[in-house]
Simulated scan of single mutants.
Amino acid sequence: MSLDLLPNPAHGFHAEPCSARCQRIWQHGDHALIGVSTGNSYFTQERLAALLTWAGHFFTDVDVLYVDTHIDTMLVALGHSAQHATKLAKSRIRDVRRRIRRALEQIRPGGDRFRVHALSDFLAEPTYQRLRVHVDQALASDHRFASVCEDMVRRFLLARPDPDGDAPKTLRAGLNYLLAELPFFVDSPAIFGVSSSANCYHVSTPLVEYLVRYQDGVLRAARNQGFMVVRPAEDYPHP
């Protein structure tokens, strides 16, 4: 399965499956989904190139997904004018596209194996739409899941752990951003037409922890949906 895109097959990353099932999905090596957050300085061109090379070593197929939806409304909710939010959102989307493109050019030959998508590419797809309806129903009917989503928005999108500091409009904008991504956490194998898939990100989140821990909720991850925390090995202390 190794493509030998770079000499070191580990490529300086530490991978941690989030459960025993996630470990098995990683071992199968069918598919990895690499989510790239727009506007996140963590995803430099060099780090993306190394991360994609790592994924190409362990997985047969790799898809890269960047978010290009609800960015402007998030920025407006955070205090930007509508005009400035639109301009800033477009700039951030162009920037993440450029970084991904240059990262893939950096790891050639082999970069053409990776498929790159904007989230908006899937909005009209029936599988995505079916999963999105399921997500919205879960948010409305499962208080535990709704609480996890709100916590996720406050901690990761708004960077405000104090719930009293979030106006309803701001929280709603963050939820809209998050809900657009959620189908890829619930059943990315169905969306991409693969046998199993590992959703890879550099931090664990309340949402992933919920989907791994609770199998009795309204919203459940597909049995062939895995999650992995993949971080630079330098972030971990050496014994």
Rank of each mutant, 00 (worst) to 15 (best):
M1K: 10
L3N: 09
L3I: 03
L3K: 10
L5A: 01
L6E: 08
L6G: 06
P7F: 12
N8D: 15
A10N: 15
A10K: 15
H11K: 11
G12W: 12
F13E: 02
H14N: 10
H14P: 02
P17R: 15
A20P: 00
R24D: 04
R24F: 04
W26T: 07
H28Y: 06
G29V: 09
A32D: 02
I34Q: 04
T38R: 01
Y42C: 12
F43I: 09
F43Y: 11
T44A: 09
Q45F: 07
E46M: 14
L48W: 07
A49F: 14
A49L: 08
A50I: 15
W54P: 00
H57K: 10
F58K: 10
F58I: 13
V62Q: 01
V64P: 00
Y66E: 01
V67T: 02
V67D: 00
T69A: 05
D72W: 05
M74R: 14
M74H: 10
M74C: 12
L75W: 00
A77L: 11
G79H: 13
H80A: 13
H80G: 06
H80W: 10
H80V: 13
S81R: 07
Q83F: 05
A85F: 06
A85C: 02
A85S: 10
L88F: 07
L88C: 02
K90W: 13
R92H: 08
I93T: 06
R94M: 01
D95L: 03
V96W: 03
R97C: 05
R97A: 01
R98V: 05
I100E: 00
R101F: 03
L104A: 06
P109W: 14
G110L: 01
G111K: 04
D112S: 12
R113F: 09
R113P: 03
R115G: 08
H117D: 01
A118Y: 06
S120A: 07
D121S: 06
D121L: 04
L123E: 07
P126K: 08
P126S: 11
T127C: 05
Y128A: 02
R130V: 06
R130H: 10
R130F: 03
R130T: 14
L131D: 03
Q137W: 10
L139H: 08
A140T: 11
H143I: 12
A146F: 11
V148N: 09
V148S: 08
V148D: 12
E150S: 07
D151T: 15
V153F: 13
R155P: 00
F156N: 13
L158F: 01
L158E: 02
R160H: 13
D162H: 09
D162I: 11
D166V: 15
D166Q: 15
A167C: 04
K169W: 14
K169L: 13
R172G: 07
A173G: 01
G174V: 12
G174I: 15
N176C: 11
N176W: 04
Y177R: 14
Y177F: 15
L178S: 03
L179A: 04
A180W: 06
D187C: 01
S188K: 07
S188C: 07
S195C: 04
S196E: 13
S196W: 08
S196A: 10
H202W: 10
V203M: 06
Y210D: 11
D216N: 09
G217T: 04
G217K: 05
V218A: 00
V218R: 03
R223N: 05
R223P: 00
R223E: 05
N224V: 07
V229G: 02
R231C: 07
R231T: 15
P232E: 15
A233T: 14
P239T: 13
